[in-house]
Amino acid sequence: MSSSSAPLDRRGLAITAGAFVIWGLVPLFWALLQHVPPMQILGHRMLWGGVLVIGWLLLTGGTAWLRNVWRRPRLALMLAASGLCISVNWGLFIWAVTNGHVVETSLGYFINPLMNVVIGVLLLGERLSRPQWLAVGVAAAGVAWLTVGYGALPWIALTLACSFALYGLLRKLAEVEAVQGLGVESLYLFLPALALVLWGEATGSGHFVDGWGWRTDLLLVLGGALTALPLIGFAYGVRRIPLAVVGLLQYIAPTLSLACGVFVFGEPFGIDRAIGFGAIWTALAIFAADGLHRSRRRAAEEVASMPAEAAPLCDEAPRR
């Protein structure tokens, strides 16, 4: 039976959508820590997120997941590189949010799907359809317009998009289960994170336990959970719903971030930004419509290629 005819896993859909909602609203959380230096936030985020993920893996599966990676040096190296990419992404995102650039972070995650397409063409030899090339061209025009409006490249958005796209590429090529891969990345980041925290305490930029107060300390610990839980939820959900649905759901996060930047933090969003964002949204609409068309055509071709006696079975999806 074609997978396209199976009923959508509602639990997987809800958990995946929830992960994107958390990512979209997380600027509200990091803004509560504006009085904490961004590098200290990053250190605590990596430290406590690692404690949660590694602890969960050890409790549920022992150390088999770790041995599975260490036996394959190439995989271990790829996860070290992906850990570096995600730490750059997290660090820049925290800095941008705590310094009043929430709108530009949302732009980065609107650009990200199209950056994935470009990487697929340049590094994986994938081919684009005409609508996809049109989408990339329109998005590039939008970035060029924003560059003229800013008077400089929107480097925050482009760095966030590139770092997350490279992270996605490495995790696509790394043959490891999603949460286990996150656990190995967390191991790589644990010592640098601990060093950042201890360096802050030694130099006076960190005041964990004895200076910021228990509310700030609790927020820093919760920041680790807020990092790990959406990633775990995403890893759970993405295995249970079609990638086409995931592709549409991913726009929840930058849309909510943009709303936070404009309506909560009062960041400017004039006509120049509206034109640039409008071009990128148009590109995303073209890209999404083309993807939907292709998935429907592929499903129709699968049904058409089935033996005549099997075709009627596709009309009856199993009930859950």
Rank of each mutant, 00 (worst) to 15 (best):
V138R: 00
T227I: 00
A140E: 00
P37E: 13
S257M: 11
L170K: 13
Q132N: 04
E302T: 10
I86F: 07
A96R: 13
L42N: 02
P73V: 10
T282C: 15
S2H: 02
P230R: 15
A165R: 00
A193G: 03
C314N: 09
L107Q: 04
A6R: 13
S163Q: 04
L182V: 13
T16L: 11
Q180T: 04
V36D: 01
S163I: 07
N116P: 01
P254D: 10
G12R: 05
I86D: 05
A31E: 11
A304V: 08
R45W: 04
Y150W: 01
G149L: 10
L256D: 04
L189N: 01
A308K: 07
N68R: 15
L258R: 07
I271Y: 05
A310L: 15
A279H: 03
I86V: 14
T98E: 05
L191C: 01
L292P: 02
G276T: 13
T147A: 07
S305C: 04
V102Q: 01
E177K: 08
G62M: 08
G183P: 00
S3G: 15
G24Y: 12
P192F: 09
E177H: 09
M46Y: 02
P154E: 14
T63H: 01
I271V: 14
C85M: 15
F164D: 06
A244P: 00
G100K: 15
F208C: 06
L122P: 01
T105H: 12
P37R: 11
A152S: 13
R71M: 06
A288P: 02
A195P: 02
I252A: 02
W214S: 13
P192H: 02
A289N: 00
S257Q: 15
V97F: 14
R215M: 13
G200C: 08
A195S: 09
A96N: 11
C314T: 12
F110L: 10
L114M: 12
N89W: 01
V26G: 05
W90H: 05
P254Q: 12
G276Y: 12
L229S: 07
